[in-house]
């Protein structure tokens, strides 16, 4: 579980996060949604420890990150898996080397043990034959799956995904969403996903935090988001006619 209390972050005069308090639960897919410029990426980078923040705290299973020593922070980061928006695969390495990288850096496993683990996770993300390809030879969807494989190869406790569906076709996007959800449940990881994609919200949003202007405007789940009368949320989530109709049908069926 990740507990965030009164998180505040500024860049010069610009106050980006204005005091966010929330929790992200273990074994669940937690989504952060909001318009562009609402502070989602800054929030995610604060959670990852890539940005320092002025006020508040972030606790990973009770350990407040800012109070850890450098070594403890390093150990904590080894328990974090991250899927970047652009996949961020190392382009000088093959797909298998990319996936093996966290094992080489943080474990004392033998080459064959590492190879077995790489084979296992590449199979898990449905890429059993992609070992020797370079990232540039892989499609966007494959790159995302490799990024997921690299993120989970060292059995992380926390998985962060920054817009994992951006640039993917709807079918591949659903495959990625379901893969993240399955992995979250299977390994009991605390997963936090930063997303714009309303399909993801409806498919896998077990907990949803809606940000607006650096503040938490609403939180709930994919079930409660249909019933909310919070105008800020409904304006954003049901901005398209299709989602308006979906909501109407859902409310009629469940009234």
């Amino acid at each position: 579980m990740i507990e965030v209390k009164d998180l505040q972050k500024s860049f010069g005069e610009a106050h980006i996060l204005k005091g966010i308090t929330t929790t992200f639960e273990k074994g669940k897919t937690n989504l952060i949604i909001g318009q562009s410029g609402s502070g989602k990426t800054v929030f995610l980078k604060c959670l990852l420890g890539l940005f320092d923040y002025e006020e508040g705290s972030i606790a990973y299973d009770g350990h407040i990150f800012s109070k850890l020593t450098e070594d403890e922070k390093r150990n904590m980061r080894a328990k974090i898996g991250m899927v970047f928006q652009g996949s961020a695969l190392f382009d000088s390495m093959t797909i298998a080397e990319n996936v093996m990288f966290p094992l080489q850096m943080f474990t004392k496993q033998s080459k064959s043990e590492m190879q077995d683990r790489v084979d296992f996770v590449l199979k898990r993300v449905n890429l059993p034959d992609a070992h020797n390809k370079m990232p540039s030879e892989a499609s966007g969807g494959m790159q995302k799956r490799v990024a997921i494989a690299r993120a989970i190869v060292n059995k992380p406790r926390y998985l962060f995904c920054d817009e994992p569906n951006s640039g993917l076709d709807p079918k591949t996007a659903i495959v990625i969403d379901n893969l993240i959800k399955e992995i979250t449940e299977e390994y009991q990881i605390t997963t936090v996903i930063n997303s714009h994609d309303m399909n993801s919200v409806m498919e896998i949003g077990e907990k949803i935090v809606f940000l607006k202007d650096g503040l938490k405007a609403w939180e709930g789940s994919k079930e409660t988001i249909f019933r909310t009368d919070n105008e800020v949320v409904t304006d954003f989530v049901y901005s398209s006619n299709l989602f308006k109709k979906v909501r109407k049908m859902y409310l009629e069926e469940n009234s």
Binding site: L50, R77, F84, A88, L89, D91, P102, M105, F106
Partner: peptide, 16 residues
């Protein structure tokens, strides 16, 4: 290029 494509961020997140 590693900075632009977030590869450096990926290293930092891993604690490297």
């Amino acid at each position: 290029t590693m900075r632009v494509t977030e590869q450096i961020d990926a290293l930092e997140v891993m604690g490297i």
